[in-house]
Each structure stands twice: as C-alpha cells, then as structure tokens.
Design a protein around this nucleic acid. Sequence first.
DNA 1: GTTAGCACTCGTTTAAAGAGAGTGCTAACA
DNA 2: TGTTAGCACTCTCTTTAAACGAGTGCTAAC
Lengths: 355, 355
Amino acid sequence: MLTEPGREAAETELDERKKKILQAVIRNYLETGEPVGSRTISKYTDLNLSSATIRNEMADLEEMGYILQPHTSAGRIPSDKGYRLYVDTMMEEKEREVVEMKEMLVERQDKMETLLKQIVRVLAQNTRYATMISAPQTKRNKLKFIQLSKVEANQILAVIVIEGNVIKNSILSVKEELDDETLLKLNILLNSHLNGLSIDEISLGMISVMKQQAGIHGDIVGDVIDAVAEGIRNEEDLEIYTSGTNNIFRYPELADQEKASELINTFEEKQLLGELLQDAGSENGNTGIQVYIGAESQVQSMRDCSVVTATYELGGGMKGTIGIVGPKRMDYDRVVGTLRTIQTQLDELYRKDDR
Amino acid sequence: MLTEPGREAAETELDERKKKILQAVIRNYLETGEPVGSRTISKYTDLNLSSATIRNEMADLEEMGYILQPHTSAGRIPSDKGYRLYVDTMMEEKEREVVEMKEMLVERQDKMETLLKQIVRVLAQNTRYATMISAPQTKRNKLKFIQLSKVEANQILAVIVIEGNVIKNSILSVKEELDDETLLKLNILLNSHLNGLSIDEISLGMISVMKQQAGIHGDIVGDVIDAVAEGIRNEEDLEIYTSGTNNIFRYPELADQEKASELINTFEEKQLLGELLQDAGSENGNTGIQVYIGAESQVQSMRDCSVVTATYELGGGMKGTIGIVGPKRMDYDRVVGTLRTIQTQLDELYRKDDR
DNA sequence: GTTAGCACTCGTTTAAAGAGAGTGCTAACA
DNA sequence: TGTTAGCACTCTCTTTAAACGAGTGCTAAC
C-alpha cells in the first residue's frame, strides 16, 4: 500500500467531519450491536454526504485505529480506542430519572446492608446491566469502644464498636463465672487502654501489661483482643453485593457459554470484583467516575466488557464504589448519568440522616 | 395398536429383568447424557441378551412410562417416573470422602456465616453442581438479653441477644445526653420486663407500662423495642448462601441461554430458593434427605433440574437445609452420599464445639 | 422365548448454491 | 480537489439437498 506524504490519515488530530462520522458509527453500533455501513451513516447524519465519501473517511478512521472491520466487506465497529475517544470527549451525559431509586432510598434504612442491596438491585433493573457495590469503608479502622457483658454463666458477650459505628460481636467462653464487679473492672481496663487505637497500634507489650493487670483473668483479655483484631480485619476486607448478573444474557456478545460462565463465576466469587472496585476507588478521577473499556480493567473474564465505576462518599471518610458491567457497546451516556444521580442522592441521604 | 390381554406391559410390577434393564438405561444416561440404545444395554449388562430382546423389553418399559424416546429411532432416556423409581428403590448411596470438607470444617469457625459459605463452596467444588444452604433457625426466637451503652454523647448502642446466641446491634439517636445511672436503670427496666419473651408475647400494654416507668425516656424504650422487633424479624427471614451457580454450564441440557438465565436469576434472587429449602425442611423424611425430580420442586425455573435437599441440625432445635441443584441426570448416588456425610460431620461439629 | 436380518425413521453432518450487505476502486463531475 | 455514481469483488449467512448413521420395529427363523 502506498503512503503519500501528508495524507489525511496520517494526521494525529481528527477533523470535525471525521469526529462526526466516528460518533455516528459509535452511536449506531451502541444501539444495534451490528457493524454499521457507510450507507447507514450517510442517511443517519446531517452531513449530506454520499456513502462513497463516507467510505473514504471510514477507511481513514480505520487506518487511524478508531474503528475496525470484523471481516472484509462488513461494516465497521468501534475499536477500544474509538470507544475511549467517545467516552473521553464526545459523550453527553443523560440526566437520568431513576424514579424508583428516589422512592426506595427515602424508605427508612436501618441497615447499611439492606440499603446497598437495594441500590444494586434498582440499578440493575434500571440499566439492564450487571451491577455491584462495595460497602463503604474508612481507611483506618480505630477501636471506639468495647463492652463485655455476661450472657450465661460461662459465656461472655464482647461488643466491639469501630470508628464509623461499625459493630462486631463475639461470644467468649470462660472457665469460671465472673461476677459483675470483675466484669466492670475488665471493661474499664480494656477501654482505658485500647480506645482510639487502630489494629497496628496495639503492641504486644501493651497486651502483656494488660494481662498482668487483669491477674487471673488475663486469658479473657487475650480472647477479647483476638476478637477485636478479627473484627477489624473482617471489616477491612470488602463486603460486596451484586445484582442483575443474568442481564449479561441480553447481550449476544457476552452470552455464549464460555464467556457467560466465566462472568457469572467472577460475580459469584466476588474476589476479583473487590480488587476491581478497590482499584477504581483509588484511581478515582476528579468526578469519581471511571470507565474501563475491555482489557483496561485487568479482569480477564471482562475483556469483552466495559465497566463503569463511581465512588460514593457517606461522610467521615466512608467511601465505597459502585460498578456497572456491560458489553463494550454499553450506553455510556445513560450509565454515567445514572451513576452521577446516585452519587448525588447518596450524598443527600448522608447529609439528611447522618446516623 | 392391538392390546392383547395379559401381555407383560400391562403388569404393574416390574420383573427382575426389566428392573435390571431400566437401571442400566438410567446409569448409562447419567454418565453420558445421551439417549441409550438397545445394543449398548446388551453389552453393558450381564444379562447376555441380544439387542433385539432388549428392544422388546424397552418397548414395554416405554409403554409403562419409565423411559421415553426423544424422537422415533433414537435411544431411550429415563422419564421422571423412571428417575423416581431409581431414586426410591435402586439407588446405592456411595459413601463419599469429601476430604477437603473435613479439613475445612476443622478450621476454627467463629462466624456461622463463614462456616456456611465454606460448606456450600466445598460442596459445589466436590459435586460440580450448584449448591445452596439456609442458615440454621430456631422456630421461636426469644429475647435473651438487652444491653444499652453510650457510644457518643447522643448515640446509644443497643445490643440484643436472641436465643441461640444470635446477636443484633442497633444504634439509636437520643435528643438529650443520658448519664450512666439512667442508662443502668433503663437496662434493668428493659431486661426485667422483656427477657425470655418472643416477639408475639410483647404486648402493647406491656410497652406502655414500661414507657410510663421510664418517664421522660419513654421514647428510648419505644426505639429499643422497635429494634428488638426488627432484629428478631430479620433473624426469622431466611439467610441463604449459594455457590457454584456456573456449574450449570457443565450440563448442556441446562446451559442454553433461556434456561441458564432463569436459573441464575433464581439463584441470585434467593427468594424462591428460600421457599424451596423451607418446604424441604418441613417435609423432611425420616433421613432428612429429599429428592425432587423435575416439576416436583414447584420452582418453575427448575423444571429441568433435580434438587436434592438435606436438613441438618446444630442442636437446640437449630435446623437448616442444604440443597444441591443439577440436571435430572444428576449422580444421585454420589450426591446423597455426600450430603449424608456432611450431615454427620455437622452433627459431630456441634457436639464437639457447642458454642 | 430369543435372535438375526432388514427396511425404515429421523436427527446430524457435509456440501453446494444463492442472497445480501458492504467494501474498494475507477472514472466522471462540479 | 473534493465528491459521487457505478461496478466488480469479498465474505458471511441462509437455504437446500444429499449422504450418513444410530437406532428402532417387525418378521421370520431357531
């Protein structure tokens, strides 16, 4: 193939007309999922150009890597690079209503868990993609408060309250029955030493001092500290909720057995989702919304998917991430708009009711 | 078609040879998933009969409804009735090792949740079917113990312990700060009135008496009671964990898009699984193991599946149900054996460590 | 009662033909 | 010089037909 010097295809910038054509190709492909041909574009746009002209332009766009042909003599589909340009510069966020969402969020939510489950659920129904959400987390979990109480003759209930009012319970067995006074003393001992500390700040030395002070009840102190450590650690590993996994069957390009099986496994295992969401949470652009196209997300099973994530904040540094997984030809405009709406609503929810 | 009087096909009981042939058909079909022909059976069994004879017998079995032909001139596959007979009278439980299971269960399990998640997981890996488990439940949840403590100036932590040492937490906001003495009084008031009662036994009259006694803090009493009610109610609706959903793709008869999508949805929603497991728990034969073939399970999306359930007991009337979902040609012998093993192991686990 | 043999059925595989959508290129045009 | 009409060509998808093969039911012989 000859390459003339200075020909258009070698330019790095796209001129206005090419942009319009690329946009038309992408828009059309998002809708139909079929490769789009020159004739379609010729009618679809307001450029008033014949299909032949469009063909020339499309050949250029292909050479530049923005679109590609599944096979000779088929229409064009966007490449990852094309999607990327679209998402970065051409997308027009559609303000989404998410009517149901508003209603649902208004309902009294005592449990964070229920709230999160509702969010992913409504989101999946609304967008018709697979959705996931990670529970909000503080960066450093500090112990706020410990309370021991007697449940039965030889059983002690340890309630552990962590920064952000996260509560963990643990039941400890003790050999000899403790009277109320001893329990009170232990409570004071534990709280005076441990409150306000993170897991890294509790030193072995500190523990042995406490055990000494507790005398014959030293082993209980040990058990409680174990429980604290476990409670905090559990809180530190991500809790993730998913919904609408079976939406992937709506999109033929994801629905074949092998891909579907892998994807569903990823959603069930949640392990990889956690990493994905966590990465997204830390990359976190200025708006808190990130788009990963194809291989950009690092998750093998999602190489044919796009993932849109949004970090949300619930005040006090409590941050979580929402993710939407769909085909590459996902309706980015709508998804980003919807996520933005939810960000705002969660923000309002927190302000109104900062329990 | 002529029907001669007294011909074999009209008999209600299967003679020994027919039984053997039916069993061979089923066994073979369980393995291969392909319709099985007369020639295969002729070689497979020790009957030393020619394919022609087998053909005659198979025609009889078909007329009696134990097997059927997907189409003329194909081999035979078992009908639901055939499976049923097999499960009821011909199955030979295979004692299964479940080696991994034993190791995993030995690990220290503080949280019921973790234990259950591990069980379904190992079970799914072992059987290569989709699995589910419902958390153990007591029939009547009684309140054992309430503890209020101050977390912050205007926040009270209510810890609610239910029979079976299930613990619920709730954070309540209060308008005015409470001193330690008031808190102690409230604790005594609540515990003396409510301990040992189930949700139905807490009457409106009782509540108003308590509110009166609490004086200006009556509204806190109300809040606590709400929290108690919610805690118990939450405990009463089934928690269900699933694993290995994507195993359904291993079986072509379940893997087509429509069926797979429905099944996956059922597993994600968990609603229907709950009903299924609950029904199974109450039907509960003498061994605690139930087999539902095809439409027997009432769940629409599982009409092409079989479900094997096992109830397990963790002492103190704490009962839960495990379920395994696979194709109708599931390896019943192995599945039932595996479930039996797990029943036993859970039983031992409880005896050893009745925390 | 059992079995060999054979015609017949029906799903599956393979091959070929045809249709259709879309392209690239050439030549003409404004 | 950019745009456009026209046309041959390519490649997938669908349709049609033919060949294949596993398995049956039936008949007649043992």
